[in-house]
Every structure is written in C-alpha cells, then in structure tokens.
Amino acid sequence: NKASVVANQLIPINTALTLIMMKAEVVTPMGIPAEEIPKLVGMQVNRAVPLGTTLMPDKVKNYE
C-alpha cells in the first residue's frame, strides 16, 4: 500500500505548504502520493484542510 499526503495540522485556505504541515500515511481513498511532498512545498491550498485530512489534487492550486 502506498502512502498519501495527510495534513499534520489545520492548513488555512491559501496557505503555502511546508514540510512540517504534511505527513505520509496509508489512507483510503488515496490522495496525492507521499513521494510528491517535496514538489508540494510552496504550493498553496485552495481551501482549508483540517488536521488528519488527506490532501487530494483538487485541494492544491496548480497541482498536476
């Protein structure tokens, strides 16, 4: 099972992601793969992401 990116804290809307905000966890359904964490640093979320929520591609601005 592959790990996904999960919010390590509440991430407010329009916040630029940092390493400390994210952790890798095996979750269902799968979100953004954990190996993409370095790519996500500096990207902004387009909505608030509660603690423990899986980061889905549609929650990150300009994620492809």
Rank of each mutant, 00 (worst) to 15 (best):
S4H: 04
I20A: 13
I13W: 05
E36V: 06
D58E: 10
Y63H: 04
M21C: 08
V45T: 08
T15Y: 05
L10N: 15
P38W: 09
E35M: 11
G42R: 00
P29V: 08
M43P: 00
A16C: 14
P29C: 09
Q44N: 05
N46Y: 08
E25I: 10
V45F: 00
A48N: 14
I20Q: 14
A34Q: 03
Y63V: 04
L10Q: 10
P12G: 05
A16H: 13
M56F: 12
L19A: 10
D58W: 14
A48T: 15
E35H: 13
V41Y: 00
L19N: 08
I20K: 13
G31F: 04
E64I: 15
A16W: 13
V41K: 00
Q9C: 15
M30N: 11
V60Y: 00
K59E: 15
E35C: 15
T15A: 11
K39E: 09
S4W: 00
I11P: 02
T53Y: 10
Y63Q: 02
N8A: 15
I20H: 12
K2D: 09
L55P: 02
V27M: 06
T54Y: 00
N46F: 04
V45I: 05
E35W: 13
T15K: 05
E36F: 12
A34E: 05
K39F: 13
M22S: 04
A16V: 14
L55K: 01
M56S: 14
E64T: 14
N62W: 10
G42A: 02
V49P: 04
L19I: 10
M56R: 05
I11S: 03
V49N: 04
T28M: 13
T15G: 05
T53A: 15
A16T: 13
T28G: 04
L55I: 13
V41Q: 03
V49F: 06
V41F: 00
A3R: 11
G42K: 00
P33C: 12
M21D: 08
V5C: 07
N14I: 06
N46L: 15
M30L: 12
A3Q: 10
V6P: 02
Q44M: 12
A3E: 10
L55D: 04
T15I: 09
M56C: 11
P33Y: 08
N8E: 04
V5L: 04
E36L: 11
L40E: 02
V41R: 02
V27Q: 02
G31D: 03
N1Q: 15
V49G: 02
L10Y: 15
I37Q: 05
K2N: 13
A48Y: 09
A48W: 10
K59C: 15
I32V: 03
L17R: 00
D58T: 05
A7R: 00
M30R: 11
P50A: 11
M22T: 03
V49Q: 05
T15S: 09
N8S: 14
M30D: 07
K23Y: 09
N8K: 11
V49E: 06
V27C: 08
N62I: 01
A24K: 06
L40F: 02
P38R: 09
L19D: 08
M22C: 07
G31Y: 03
M21R: 00
A48F: 08
N14P: 00
K39Y: 14
A3I: 04
M21P: 06
I32H: 04
N62P: 02
I32C: 04
K61M: 12
L10S: 13
G52Q: 02
P12Y: 07
